[in-house]
């Protein structure tokens, strides 16, 4: 890691992004008290996570996609009962939290089945309950939706959003699935080769790549060619394609030009519909990995 520094506020969901080997997991492990930094300083709710490991562990929840809170040969409820003791929860607190998590994650039928009989998606829901059982104030989620189907991903994203809002839990989300980031995070921290290369809003990052935005319009018959000609005259380097009644324009440039282009299309053509498309987030993030953020 090289001079990585960032803060996370209560209730914030921050996406931690970077290619393989960028230092995402290392960062999370340092913050969780698993790894000892050779230099530098981390503070979680005022505590040094390594030197005050046990105190820090009471405040945090962790989900590492490849590791498990559960006991493989026993039902999840046995692991939860153990965690109750480990975190010193009262019986009443434990039951209330388990009920809340069970309702949010649909665990009623799963909690009493042996872990080895659960599907990946079911097990991940049970793992999330274990990570949030003691109502941690900070949670690190490393690839929480890895390997899940669409329904499973949706359920877990809904849960993360809901529990963060409800309890003002700060969440750091590490993932390669950029849909997780788009749906959950307003802010992203991007690492590459151990260094922080971007820390800011996802929207800002997308705006920086506004030149990659495109316009897609569905036109009434007869107006496509005239519209194409006017666009080409104004933006000679733009890529303009007409397929039947569909017009596609890309490479226009800055956000102001996009607005101008939309106005021009609306003046020239008889429109059925028009849409401005953001570049795919994968392309934006790949560009950030490769070229950084100016």
């Amino acid at each position: 890691m090289d001079d990585v520094s960032f803060d996370v506020a209560e209730g914030e969901i921050v996406g931690l992004l970077g290619p393989n080997g960028a230092g995402k997991s290392t960062t999370v492990k340092i913050l969780a008290g698993v790894l000892y930094p050779t230099s530098g300083d981390a503070r979680i709710l005022g505590l040094d996570p390594f030197k005050r490991r046990i105190d820090n562990a009471r405040n945090i929840g962790v989900l590492f996609g490849q590791r498990s809170h559960l006991l493989w040969d026993l039902p999840p409820i046995d692991a939860y009962a153990l965690l109750r003791k480990v975190y010193g929860l009262s019986q009443a607190d434990y039951e209330a939290r388990l009920r809340e998590l069970s309702d949010l994650l649909g665990l009623d039928e799963l909690m009493r089945q042996s872990v080895r009989t659960l599907s990946l998606g079911q097990r991940m829901r049970c793992e999330l309950a274990a990570a949030f059982l003691h109502r941690p104030r900070v949670v690190y989620l490393d690839e929480p939706t890895i390997g899940l189907d669409i329904e499973g991903k949706h359920a877990i994203r809904e849960f993360i959003r809901s529990i963060s809002q409800e309890h003002q839990t700060a969440i750091i989300l590490t993932t390669h699935d950029l849909s997780d980031i788009q749906e959950l995070c307003e802010r992203v921290v991007v690492l590459n080769e151990g260094a922080l290369i971007y820390d800011g809003s996802l929207e800002h990052l997308l705006n920086r790549h506004a030149s990659s935005r495109s316009i897609q319009a569905e036109l009434a018959d007869g107006s496509a060619n005239a519209t194409r000609a006017r666009l080409a005259e104004r933006w000679p380097s733009a890529a303009i394609a007409v397929e039947g009644t569909r017009l596609r324009v890309s490479g226009i440039g800055a956000a102001e030009d996009i607005v101008s282009a939309v106005s021009l299309i609306m003046e020239t053509a008889r429109l059925r519909s028009i849409t401005v498309l953001d570049p795919p987030i994968e392309d934006v993030i790949l560009s950030v990995y490769q070229h950084g953020v100016e």
Binding site: K29, G33, V34, A57, F64, R67, V86
Partner: peptide, 13 residues
């Protein structure tokens, strides 16, 4: 195996 990470994130000696 890296499982030690799960031991270290719990508030237990």
């Amino acid at each position: 195996s890296g499982e030690i990470a799960m031991d270290l994130v719990r508030p237990i000696d």
